[in-house]
């Protein structure tokens, strides 16, 4: 898994690629927490290049969403059909705002 973080005005774009599973999900959680702890609470998580995400990955993004609740948001962009299926199984497709591309997601703030 690779994580690339960039700032777009007040929005933080977190682009993840590869496989998110129980071995590495904590790295995503730590990256999101570091941003939130430094005051960057308007986050877009771009999942276009995530080919696989287990429940360990979901745990981290739900934790991040709970952490920013009230001060910001975590919005998702272009999940693959497989990641979308995982989000739907956990009912998270109705809890996260999901956008078709990162430009729209960043612009939504």
């Amino acid at each position: 898994m690779n994580i690339n973080i960039s700032a777009h005005d007040q929005v933080t774009l977190v682009e993840v690629s590869g496989r998110i599973d129980s071995m590495n999900a904590h790295q995503l959680g730590e990256a999101l927490s570091a941003e939130i702890d430094s005051g960057h609470t308007q986050i877009v998580l771009d999942l276009a290049n995530v080919e696989y995400m287990s429940s360990a990955g979901l745990r981290e993004i739900v934790s991040a969403l709970k952490k920013v609740r009230g001060t910001g948001d975590v919005r998702l962009s272009q999940p693959s059909p497989r990641v979308q299926e995982v989000l739907e199984m956990a009912g998270l497709d109705t809890i996260f705002q999901i956008f078709p591309n990162p430009i729209e997601a960043v612009g939504s703030y």
Partner: peptide, 9 residues
């Protein structure tokens, strides 16, 4: 809670 989805999946 954040986790606990494994068995459901």
């Amino acid at each position: 809670s954040s986790g606990g989805w494994g068995i459901h999946f």
